[in-house]
Amino acid sequence: MDRLQNIETFVRVAQTQSFAEAARQLRVAKSVVTTRIKQLEEYLGAPLFHRSTRVVRLSELGQAFLGDCMELVGRANDVVDHMRDARGKPAGTLRVHALTGFVVGHFGALLREFQTAYPDIRLELVVSDAVVDPVKAGVDCALQIFPAASTELVSRPLFAVRRVFCATPEYLAQSGMPDNPRDLHEHRLGLYSGYPTRDRWTFYDGNGAELTTYLQAALLTNSVHLLREYALEHAGIVCLPTLVAGEAIREGRLQIVLPEYQLSSFRLSAVYAGTLRNAFKLELFIEHIRSAFTRVPPWDAGLIDAGLLPEKLIEA
């Protein structure tokens, strides 16, 4: 019996609450997971899980056992990674879940540079706007703008994500430029569906005074890239993160609406389990992102230099 391998399998089943999902993440047959758990239970002399056709939950022994096992697996993987690094070759697979809005247009060069520096690290990148628990999703970290879903997760801020309302000059010439956030009610709006404030929008004027209004979307979607295409078709006013809209704004294809007002910004963060396997490889990856995107990301720096964005941020 490979005790460490069986303990790692136990941790994965406990985290996912599923033998089938643990098998998928470990890339083995479900029968292999079942055998490993059975071997561990026979060695301990007691069940680790209560199982039914629909539910897998920890037994009292399993609950007492889990914390130490997570720490043991994380430490074992970290030791191996450091041994590889001592030989100059960090290796293995790193699994990352990332927002579509961040990845498309900004991530290719970063990945190339990371793999040039660490050629033996294999990346598995899942791209989606869904908010995930990295543990249950079977990834080492999630790059997201929303808070960690659990106190057991660590959230490392990477950079600010600003948002602006914008439209094409053609649309604004035909439909008029809003002077006040409440004027948005008179326009066709395209809005992102995933913001936690939902229909409630708070604007800040140059003095920091707040104005809150409720906005109804003509197009509500979880794709910021679709919103950009919708705006470029002169269909209406949309709210976009500057990392998606910045290039079109600099080129004059989109124009910022209500430039005297700001929306609060979010933080793109790396979210991961506190007791993590692959911790060393993940630290290398996170530091690579942090060094590539300094305090002011390049898509914002160009807009600030052009006087299209204020330098000061308003944090959510």
Score class of each variant (00 low, 15 high):
84 R>H: 15
87 R>S: 11
90 P>Q: 08
92 G>Y: 00
92 G>A: 02
95 R>P: 04
95 R>V: 03
95 R>K: 09
96 V>Y: 02
98 A>F: 02
99 L>P: 02
99 L>V: 04
103 V>Q: 01
103 V>P: 00
104 V>G: 08
105 G>T: 07
110 L>N: 03
110 L>E: 05
112 R>K: 12
114 F>Q: 11
116 T>S: 08
121 I>R: 03
121 I>S: 04
122 R>F: 15
123 L>S: 04
130 A>N: 13
130 A>L: 12
133 D>H: 05
136 K>W: 03
136 K>H: 05
138 G>Y: 01
139 V>S: 01
141 C>P: 06
142 A>P: 06
143 L>M: 02
145 I>F: 06
149 A>E: 15
150 S>W: 15
152 E>D: 10
156 R>E: 15
158 L>G: 14
161 V>Q: 02
161 V>C: 01
163 R>G: 02
168 T>A: 12
170 E>T: 14
173 A>E: 08
175 S>A: 08
177 M>V: 13
177 M>N: 09
178 P>I: 00
180 N>T: 13
180 N>Q: 12
181 P>G: 05
182 R>F: 02
182 R>N: 11
186 E>N: 05
188 R>F: 00
188 R>Q: 10
188 R>P: 07
188 R>I: 15
189 L>N: 01
192 Y>D: 15
195 Y>I: 04
196 P>N: 07
197 T>Y: 11
197 T>C: 03
198 R>M: 04
203 F>D: 04
204 Y>D: 12
205 D>S: 10
206 G>F: 05
206 G>C: 03
208 G>F: 09
209 A>F: 13
209 A>S: 12
210 E>A: 14
211 L>F: 15
212 T>A: 11
215 L>E: 02
215 L>T: 02
216 Q>Y: 14
221 T>Y: 10
227 L>W: 12
228 R>A: 14
230 Y>H: 13
